[in-house]
């Protein structure tokens, strides 16, 4: 799972006209977005712009109403199962069972992801997020920050090469921020891909290699971060809020 398969293109995520409507609500109008491999792409936009919807679609939790989506060079609908192994997801939902211990939570997900060296991997991951001393306590008794670190551990347990982060910094304590930054840094060094959504434009701008701005369910700007100065970016971001 270390190599994104079948990829002739240099993109980890390729979206063409991805739209999502449900009932009388249009959550995503039409998103065209190429997320380059090996970079950190930040998706900006204010609440209701469709960031979370797009990320849920990319994660395979939601099926787009129309449009084409390729993840790691694979068709998102037809090869959904193959894609899931490539993806690691951190969202504001923690995906943790409160009455299972940290170790049991990881073991459970690890089995579903078919991680080979499960025990060793779980310990390794717990050590990296600095929770190994609490491996056997129930997640319910964790502080918010600890639970968040466990959720981060859960996300990269199966060695994904594309990381999807939905508002990852919201409500995070300092230690979790450090853990998350280490993870993103590690991904960058390994030439893996990170796609994150945020409405915190200072933080997003400093870490991103690519910047996309979403407004009312459409991508209105998409540029490499190096092409923009801080002021230019701020101006663009302000404009998207209009």
């Amino acid at each position: 799972m270390n190599q994104a398969g079948g990829g002739a293109t240099g993109y980890a995520v390729e979206a063409r006209g991805v739209a999502k409507r449900f009932g009388r609500i249009t959550a995503l109008r039409s998103v065209d977005l190429d997320v380059p491999r090996g970079g950190v792409t930040a998706l900006f936009g204010h609440n209701g712009a469709g960031k979370t919807t797009f990320l849920r679609i990319a994660a395979g939790l939601m099926r787009p109403t129309s449009g084409e989506l390729k993840i790691a060079g694979l068709d998102a609908h037809k090869e959904a199962a193959a894609i899931r192994g490539h993806l690691g997801v951190v969202s504001h939902e923690l995906f943790l069972y409160g009455d299972l211990s940290a170790m049991e939570n990881l073991r459970f997900y690890g089995r579903l992801y078919q991680v080979d060296d499960l025990e060793a991997r779980c310990e390794e991951v717990l050590t990296r997020v600095d929770l190994i001393h609490r491996a056997n306590s129930r997640a319910r008794h964790f502080s918010r920050g600890m639970a968040q670190r466990l959720a981060i551990a859960r996300a990269f347990l199966h060695r994904p090469d594309i990381l999807l982060l939905d508002e990852p910094y919201t409500g995070l304590d300092q230690r979790s921020v450090a853990t998350l930054n280490e993870l993103i840094e590690g991904f960058r060094e390994a030439h893996h891909t990170v796609l994150l959504t945020t409405h915190d434009h200072h933080l997003g701008f400093t870490m991103a290699t690519d910047i996309a701005i979403l407004r009312r369910g459409e991508v209105i700007h998409h540029t490499p971060a190096a092409a923009l100065s801080r002021e230019e970016f701020d101006a663009l971001y302000e404009e998207s809020l209009q």
């Binding site: 999502k20 449900f22 009932g23 009388r24 609500i25 959550a27 939601m62």
Partner: peptide
């Protein structure tokens, strides 16, 4: 059920 399901992508 229709009345109690929240408006969203799952409802239908």
């Amino acid at each position: 059920l229709r009345a109690y399901l929240p408006e969203g992508s799952r409802k239908a």
